[in-house]
Structures are given as structure tokens and as C-alpha cells.
Design a protein around this nucleic acid. Structure first.
Length: 593
RNA sequence: GCCGAUGUAGCUCAAAGGUAGAGCAAUCGCCUUGUAAGUGAUAGGUUAUGGGUUCGAUUCCCAUCAUCGGCUCCA
């Protein structure tokens, strides 16, 4: 049984470190106001309302002062107080007063989450600091190891996470049980930076984003495009095998289409401004759904035709707010590997089952093992038949259970038009990114008056399921780069082997070998530069090319190549045919390494 | 969008109120090499953009754009 983080000593240490930090901050800024300061994954933070922006030097001061407070080894004392007493203690702390009011009503806790019971109001005293706090803490400040804390950075954060509220300054810190753990954590961060897709994207010449083109608009370079092509080819093959039809749709559509779909009412702020021509307004598509619906509607459908699965790698444009752009993960123009399923109610559970297992199959084929699932259910404001919502949610949950996928339920977190399952994957720094989504849509079938004819000859409303497996190909690629740290499995590597002739006299043979390998479908380059072999190996290693084939006098004589993997493993001399057989097999089997 | 930081050569960085420099990469030679950097030379910058202050701005100030870390958002 794994100990819950909330019950661990580490959690208490971090929570306590947050209090110690708050004291240090208030000593330097006596007029400062404190908000909240919880432990988080890998550390803690505390939010402050301060008279001026903090600098890195401030953080150094705070950290030094924290060590002094820790040295004092002052006891953490818990006291229960009445709301009235609490108000007195925190009379010049408006944020705390707001929290006290909330506690008194029993409606929400210090994180703004609703709670059932009216909680006890408790305070924690340590050294010269008192905080409204539920705890728990370590026994005394001395239990925090002064050498295993570090203040990391300052960031803005809205009070209570609401952008209508004032913005506070949040100091992020980290704390560990031992200096060794801290060191390990910092090392992990450094390592993660090396896997950053933005860094690798440049180093491996995969993609760029040019200011001349526009923020959030991706240029795929030949190496990145090669990987994308290979990934898409696999994706297409799997879709053909699994009963999908492909469709293609335009990048723009008339205003009226988006009016009918509801996007102009609910999504306009995320859409690029319209293009006007001949008194008609056209919008760049932020989604593909209305087009697929139009295709569906171009025919009358019998229940015998269902389910229909229309798939398209549809490029969409969304005007994301400037501050949210992030490499390939969050962009303004991206291609969704989109599909819409239309089915009869009786087919719906099976269809959901299929689409979830298909999603997992695709993600796992790209090496993703750690997949987190989220089920989002009906929100307050929702459209569509409640019975259908119920059935849909039940089908989603059943599918998750059958897939034996651990999942969290986000109660009321669904879109207004339907419940959904999202599959998320972590990036190098542990930030979660949503890739797959499987969403019901109870909105568009109504708005577009979609139907199919049942065996009684009457029209019925089909279920519409929207899904994207990779999500956006851009984001997927970003996550994929970080997942492999740039060392793509051989089936995806833009270059699968580089042939390294030792001297000029080996070049001709190297070219012949290259021709043979290319004939076998392998992606090959001969490094003909007049550099030393060592330098060529170094470059190939840095480019993370799976195989280096060294050719010198010995190999030339025996019609061989000397094989080195990017893992530094030396396989020694091998006949060319044998290498081809091995490499082709690894490509087919999607071998990683 | 909000808070903060940053923006100098392709990359990583330095310098400075008097028009910028290194390493790597690139290009051209020489070397002809045995598993992570052989060697010489050459070229490369309106210091993000637009204003302002100044005799003079790349440096100081303002705005814009972009990037980074967060927050919010993510149909």
C-alpha cells in the first residue's frame, strides 16, 4: 500500500516550509498580504500581495532567512479558534478574512473547493508567524532540512484562480527530506530540459516557428515532416483496417455554417476574423465537425449504413490567447486527426468500446505506456436528452472499465453538448497534455437536423461521436519528441542509418552499400565529409541516428559494415544483407532503442 | 489576456552612451583517418521592431512584437 502524499512527512515538510517562507517574506514586506500556500507536487508555493515585484535577489534573501528560522527550531502549534477570534488575528489580512468568511459559511475550503461540513477553524503558529491553516505540519521548523529547500521562481497567479480577481505574486519553492533528494530533483529538471521538444526541435532540425509567419504557426522542416509522414501513414493504414472512411474538407466556410453549428455564438472569441468576399463572410475553421455533418447530410442514411466513421486530418485555426502559446503543444494552426462516428442508439456502447480501444492501440503503438484517462460528465448547463446523457456516460465508463484503464471522473466537467473521455500524457517536465478525446455531441445533430431511417421507415436522430486520437498532430509530435528525447524508434527515424567511410577510398563502396540499403526501403545517408571518423560518429550520435555503419578497408574486403547503435553498443562487422534483414525487421516490429 | 523575466551572428553566450567579440555550426583548403570533436583560412550582426532622450543609442526611456516561467483559458 502506497502512502498517500497528503499523509507523508514530505507533504508536512513542504507545507511547513511554505509557512516559514511566508514569515520571511512578511518580515521583509511587513505591509504585505498573504493568500494561500499549499504543498504541491515536488514542492510548495505561497501567494502574496506585495508592494513591488519580487526579484531573484529577494528570493535569495528569503531563502537565507528561512534557514535562520529553521535553525530556531520553533514548534508548530495548532490552535482551534472561533471565526470571531480568527477575524481578530487576521484583521489586516483581507485574503485571510475572505477565507474565514468562507469557512464560516462552510461552503468552500481554502482552495475554493466546496466542502460538505462546516470545518473547524484552526491556526498554526511557528516562530513569529501565524497562519490560518488546516495543517498538518512537522513538529517544529527544525524538522525541515535547511539544505534541502530551494526557492525556485516567482510567477503571477490570480487570487482564487479567478482572472477577475487581483493578480498576486506566487513564489514557488521546493523542499525535500534530504539534500540528496533536492539534488536529485534539480538534476531531474536539468535532464528534462534536455528533452524539451523546443530545444530538440531546433537541434534535430524538426520544425520552427517563425516570427515572420506568426506566433503559433508551425513550419515543419524535412526531418519533422518525415516523421509526421511516417506517423500519418501508420495512422491511415490503421484507420483503413478499422472501418473508417476518409474525407477531405476545406479550410474555410461561410458564416452561416458557423451560425448553424453555434460556433459563432459560443466560440467566436477563438476564431480568426472573417474573410469577406462578394458580400459573403467566410471563417477559417476552428473545427471540422460542421463539414463532416454536411457530408453526412448529403445523403439519406439507412440504419443498415451505420455506424459511419468519417476521418480526416483536418487543419484548424484557433486564435489562442497570446500568453498560452507553448512550442508545439499549444499553437494557433494545427491539424487534428479528427473523426466523427454516426451510429444508432443500439450501436452506441459498442462504438464507444471500439473507439476507446482503438485510441489506446494507436497511442501505445507510438510507445506511450503511461496514459491518464479522464471522464467528464454532464455540466449544469447542457443541451440534449438527459436519457441520452445517462446512456452515453454509462457507455464511456463501461468502456474505461473494460479497457482496464485507471481514470478520474470530472463531475460536471463535460462540454455543454456532451460527456467525454480525455486521454492525457505527460511531457518531459511532468506537465499533462491532452491528446485523445472522445466526445459525444448532442448539439450538432439537433442543430443540423440529422437523421437516419430505421427499419420502421421513420427518421431517427443518430448518435454523433467526435474523436481525435493524437489530438493535434503538432501537440502529439511535441509530446512524442519529449517521450523519446529525440531518439525516435527506427520506424519513425527520419534517418535510420548513416554510413561512415573512414577514408576517401571507401566512399565508393559506401555509396554502393547505401544504394542497397535504400533499395530495401531504409533511410540512409553517406557522410562523405573529409572529417575524421570520430567526428562523424559524434555528429550521428548528436542527431540520434539509430545506426552508424562504419566502412574501412576491412569491411570493404568482406562486403560488410561495422555496426554501432546510437546507444553506443558495438555490434561489430556484419554482412550487408544481414544488416538489412535486421533493420527491416526492427522497422516492422517498431523496435525502440 | 494577466504577472514577471528575456530578446546581440544559424546555435550558446560576452561586451559597451562613441556604429560589437568568442566558441560551436557554416564555407573553402590541407590531412586520409578505426568508434563522441584533426587542422588552417574565410565569411557571417541596421544588437527584435517603431518612437523618444542625447552631439552621438545597440546600451537609457516608452510602445509594439516575440520568446520563457506561471496564472487564467483550452469546443
Amino acid at each position: 500500500m502506497v502512502e498517500k502524499y497528503e499523509d507523508s512527512k514530505l507533504y508536512r515538510v513542504r507545507h511547513s516550509a511554505a509557512h516559514v517562507m511566508a514569515q520571511a517574506v512578511l518580515e521583509k514586506f511587513p505591509e504585505g498580504k498573504v493568500a494561500i500556500g499549499p504543498p504541491i507536487e515536488d514542492g510548495f508555493y505561497y501567494d502574496f500581495d506585495l508592494p513591488r515585484p519580487l526579484t531573484p535577489e529577494d528570493l535569495e534573501d528569503f531563502e537565507a532567512r528561512m534557514r535562520e528560522i529553521i535553525k530556531n527550531d520553533s514548534e508548530f502549534i495548532r490552535e482551534e479558534v472561533s471565526a470571531e477570534e480568527a477575524r481578530e488575528i487576521f484583521e489586516d489580512q483581507p485574503y485571510k478574512l475572505e477565507l474565514i468568511a468562507g469557512l464560516e459559511e462552510g461552503g468552500i475550503d481554502e482552495h475554493g473547493n466546496p466542502v460538505e461540513e462546516k470545518p473547524v477553524i484552526s491556526i498554526y503558529k511557528s516562530d513569529k508567524f501565524v497562519d490560518l491553516c488546516r495543517g498538518p505540519h512537522v513538529e517544529s521548523t527544525g524538522k525541515i532540512n535547511p539544505k534541502s529547500i530551494k526557492l525556485m521562481n516567482v510567477a503571477g497567479a490570480y487570487w482564487r484562480g479567478d482572472e477577475n480577481n487581483p493578480m498576486l505574486q506566487r513564489i514557488y519553492g521546493t523542499a525535500w527530506l534530504s539534500p540528496k533528494d533536492l539534488k536529485k530533483y534539480l538534476w531531474r529538471l536539468e535532464e528534462a530540459k534536455k528533452r524539451d521538444h523546443r530545444k530538440l526541435g531546433r537541434e534535430l532540425d524538426l520544425y520552427s516557428i517563425s516570427e515572420n509567419v506568426g506566433a503559433g504557426l508551425v513550419l515543419w522542416h524535412p526531418n519533422g515532416a518525415k516523421i509526421r509522414f511516417l506517423a500519418e501513414r501508420f495512422w491511415e493504414d490503421e484507420h483503413i483496417k478499422n472501418g473508417y472512411d476518409f474525407v477531405y474538407t476545406p479550410h474555410i466556410g461561410k458564416a452561416n455554417l458557423w451560425k448553424t453549428s453555434g460556433h459563432l455564438d459560443f466560440y467566436a472569441e477563438n476564431m480568426y476574423a472573417p474573410i469577406e468576399i462578394e458580400d459573403q463572410q467566410y471563417y477559417l475553421k476552428p473545427m471540422n465537425c460542421p463539414f463532416h455533418v454536411e457530408i453526412y447530410k448529403s445523403n439519406i442514411h439507412s440504419y443498415r449504413d451505420l455506424p459511419l466513421r468519417y476521418a480526416e486530418k483536418g487543419t484548424v485555426y484557433r486564435y489562442e490567447r497570446s500568453g498560452v502559446l507553448h512550442g508545439l503543444m499549444r499553437v494557433r494552426g494545427f491539424t487534428q486527426d479528427d473523426a466523427h462516428h454516426f451510429c444508432a442508439p443500439s450501436q452506441m456502447p459498442e462504438e464507444i468500446d471500439f473507439v476507446l480501444s482503438f485510441s489506446l492501440h494507436i497511442l501505445r503503438s507510438f510507445g506511450f505506456k503511461e496514459i491518464k484517462a479522464y471522464l467528464s460528465t454532464r455540466p449544469e448547463k447542457a443541451v440534449g436528452d438527459p436519457k441520452r446523457w445517462q446512456d452515453a456516460e454509462a457507455a464511456l465508463e463501461e468502456a474505461l472499465k473494460r479497457a482496464e484503464l485507471p481514470y478520474e471522473v470530472d463531475q460536471g466537467g463535460g462540454a455543454f453538448y456532451g460527456p467525454k473521455i480525455d486521454l492525457k500524457i505527460n511531457d518531459a517536465l511532468g506537465r499533462e497534455w491532452q491528446l485523445s478525446t472522445i466526445q459525444f455531441d448532442f448539439n450538432l445533430p439537433e442543430r443540423f437536423d440529422m437523421s437516419y431511417i430505421e427499419d420502421d421507415g421513420q427518421p431517427y436522430r443518430p448518435y454523433m461521436i467526435h474523436r481525435a486520437l493524437l489530438g493535434s498532430i503538432e501537440r502529439f509530435f511535441g509530446v512524442l519528441i519529449e517521450h523519446y528525447g529525440g531518439a525516435f524508434p527506427i520506424w519513425l527515424s527520419p534517418l535510420q542509418a548513416v554510413i561512415i567511410p573512414i577514408a576517401d577510398r571507401h566512399v565508393e563502396y559506401a555509396r554502393r552499400v547505401a544504394a542497397d540499403l535504400k533499395q530495401a526501403g531504409l533511410r540512409i545517408k553517406v557522410d562523405e565529409r573529409s572529417d575524421r571518423m570520430n567526428a562523424k560518429i559524434r555528429d550521428a550520435e548528436k542527431q540520434k541516428t539509430p545506426y552508424m555503419l562504419v566502412i574501412g578497408d576491412r569491411e570493404m574486403e568482406g562486403n560488410q559494415v561495422d555496426i554501432r547503435r546510437r546507444s553506443r553498443e558495438r555490434l561489430g562487422a556484419m554482412n550487408v544483407e544481414d544488416f538489412i534483414a535486421m533493420a527491416v525487421k526492427e522497422v516492422e516490429e517498431k523496435v525502440e532503442g
